[in-house]
Computed example of a mutant assay.
Amino acid sequence: MTSTETPVELSTAPAEAPSNDVQLTETAATKVRALLDQEGRDDLRLRIAVQPGGCSGMQYQLFFDERALDGDVELEPHGVPVVVDRMSAPYLGGAVVDFTDTIEQQGFTIDNPNAQGGCACGNSFCG
């Protein structure tokens, strides 16, 4: 593979990405723990991923996963088991996941310093 064929995800990864992990606020951690308790399983972790798609080019995915993928970054902010795949990690370094529960909005939000632009729904961004 020549350097012109190298995927963008690998060529633009910040050098400090592994040490600049994604974080959960205490509010988000509390919500994730409650959802994990509802599942009644101790083998699940919150997986945070970035996938192509959405109206801005990239979109976030948050889901519970029991799988371990090669190259996963494993974290435990506020005691919550979190995994990020190796392709998503550079896009999520320094991102903060929060949980909002207001009359206007309920759900997880991601404040990502790596996002160059976003969309009105807050679910996708430019990487």
Rank of each mutant, 00 (worst) to 15 (best):
R67A: 09
D85E: 12
S11M: 12
R41H: 13
D70A: 09
S11F: 08
A29K: 00
T100E: 14
A115D: 08
T27C: 06
I110F: 00
D72L: 12
D43S: 06
T30N: 09
Q51I: 10
D98P: 08
G54P: 07
Y60W: 07
N123L: 13
V22N: 01
A17E: 08
F63H: 10
G40I: 12
A49R: 04
D111R: 09
V96C: 01
P77Y: 02
T25P: 03
R45Q: 09
T102Q: 00
S3L: 02
C126E: 14
P77C: 05
T12A: 10
C55K: 13
T25Q: 02
L24S: 01
E74K: 08
T100Y: 00
E76H: 06
A34C: 06
G127T: 01
F63Y: 14
I103V: 15
T30A: 14
S56V: 01
Y60G: 03
G54D: 09
A13P: 04
A89R: 15
E66Q: 13
R47E: 03
D101K: 06
R33T: 14
C119H: 08
Q38M: 09
P14K: 14
Q61S: 14
T30R: 05
Y91W: 11
P7K: 14
G93S: 15
Y91C: 07
G40M: 10
R67E: 08
Q116D: 14
D21C: 00
D70G: 04
L92D: 02
A28Y: 01
R47Y: 00
Q105F: 06
T2M: 04
Q106S: 11
A120F: 01
P52F: 13
A34D: 15
L35W: 10
S19T: 13
V97I: 15
T100G: 06
R86L: 06
Q61V: 10
S56L: 01
F125Q: 06
H78I: 08
V96L: 09
S124G: 08
R33C: 04
R67W: 02
A15V: 08
E66D: 15
L35F: 08
D72N: 11
G127E: 00
S56Y: 02
Q106R: 14
S19R: 13
R86V: 07
V50G: 06
Q23E: 10
M87T: 10
E5V: 03
N112L: 01
P81Y: 13
S11R: 15
M1H: 13
A34E: 15
